[in-house]
Computed example of a mutant assay.
Amino acid sequence: MNLILQGLSANRSDIDRIAALAQAQRVVPLSPNAFRCEGVQADDALRARIDAECLAAQLDYAFADGERRLADFRLVAMDMDSTLITIECIDEIADMQGLKPQVAEITEAAMRGEIEFRESLARRVALLKGLDAAALQRVYDERLKLSTGAERMLATVKAAGLKTLLVSGGFTYFTDRMKTRLGLDYTHSNVLEIVDGKLTGRVSGVVVDAEEKKATVERVCAELGISPRQAIVMGDGANDLKMMGISGLSVAFRAKPVVRQQAHVALNFVGLDGILPILS
């Protein structure tokens, strides 16, 4: 196996120390802040030690099959809120109503898996009833920012021939704009109901919950004529676990503990482009 070590600013002494702990045969620099430690024999005890050492050094790590490359995949599927972008859009919309703490508390509980997603969505959206729809544009213009490394990651996967899917428990108002802005191939999310320029406190159509996210990945893969095992799936919350579970590479990005524990790879410090050294 290879052990990939990377950080926003990787200290070479930390890299060499962890490589020695892993008894790596050699260390290959991939960039100033990413390194491939080759010839590692990984067992549970070593993985636990590497996890602790990397957390202390603020490094991300991944044990990777040395033969696996980005070109082996055909699709990248991403959650939007707190994954492709840095915010939870519904929390920021709620802030326009002075209700961010109440909504954010429900959001956090849902992402940890403590509240079923459909219930959490209904409760949060109900709190937005009566809000002027112009607040959505304000959130997009003033608060929505891409996560670190998003544009580099997308440019690289597109150049390698992969298709892109944004599947979100958030709202079409934002995913539609992300599709246009970033040139994404597919998007799917919830529709906020708006009547006479005001939010009604309801969503219309299919609710994009964990099952629908998984089904969306399966539908897109079928359309592309590929297996879900040829998909990379990235997310941060409990409602991403089902779609991550059918993928060939699941990536927990700045994720809740329940997601980190089940993903193939966890990126806690580097950006979304941290998947690239793992598949180089």
Rank of each mutant, 00 (worst) to 15 (best):
V259M: 05
V203N: 12
R118K: 14
G274Q: 00
M111L: 14
G225E: 01
V139S: 03
G113P: 10
S250D: 07
G183F: 15
A126P: 10
D273N: 11
A48S: 11
K214Y: 08
L121H: 01
G271R: 11
V157N: 06
E92K: 09
L144G: 11
V191N: 09
I226N: 07
G130S: 06
I90R: 11
I194R: 12
A160V: 00
R49Q: 14
A64P: 00
F117A: 04
G237E: 09
Y173G: 02
F253H: 10
I226W: 09
M153P: 04
V251P: 00
A94I: 03
A57Q: 11
G248R: 00
R12L: 14
R181E: 12
L276H: 00
A160K: 14
M78I: 09
L21F: 02
T175H: 07
Y186M: 02
L59F: 09
C221N: 01
G248K: 06
V40P: 12
R202L: 08
S189K: 07
K198Y: 11
L21C: 05
K129E: 15
Y173F: 15
A34V: 04
D16P: 00
N239P: 13
F63D: 03
R254N: 15
V191K: 12
F171K: 13
A57F: 03
P257S: 11
I115Y: 04
A134M: 09
G149F: 04
V270A: 10
I115E: 09
G197Q: 06
K179C: 09
L127T: 10
L3T: 05
P257A: 10
D44W: 04
T200A: 06
K163H: 05
S204P: 00
F73L: 04
L3A: 00
R177Q: 15
E67W: 08
L8A: 09
Q102D: 14
M80Q: 04
G130T: 07
A135E: 00
A263E: 04
R219D: 10
R143P: 00
L162H: 09
R260P: 00
K242N: 05
Q97W: 12
V207R: 09
M96P: 00
G197L: 10
P29K: 09
T180I: 06
A110V: 15
M1D: 03
T148Q: 13
V191E: 10
R68L: 12
H188N: 08
V76N: 08
T180G: 10
Q137C: 01
G205D: 12
Q102C: 02
A160N: 07
Q23R: 13
A19F: 10
T83G: 13
D14C: 00
I115H: 03
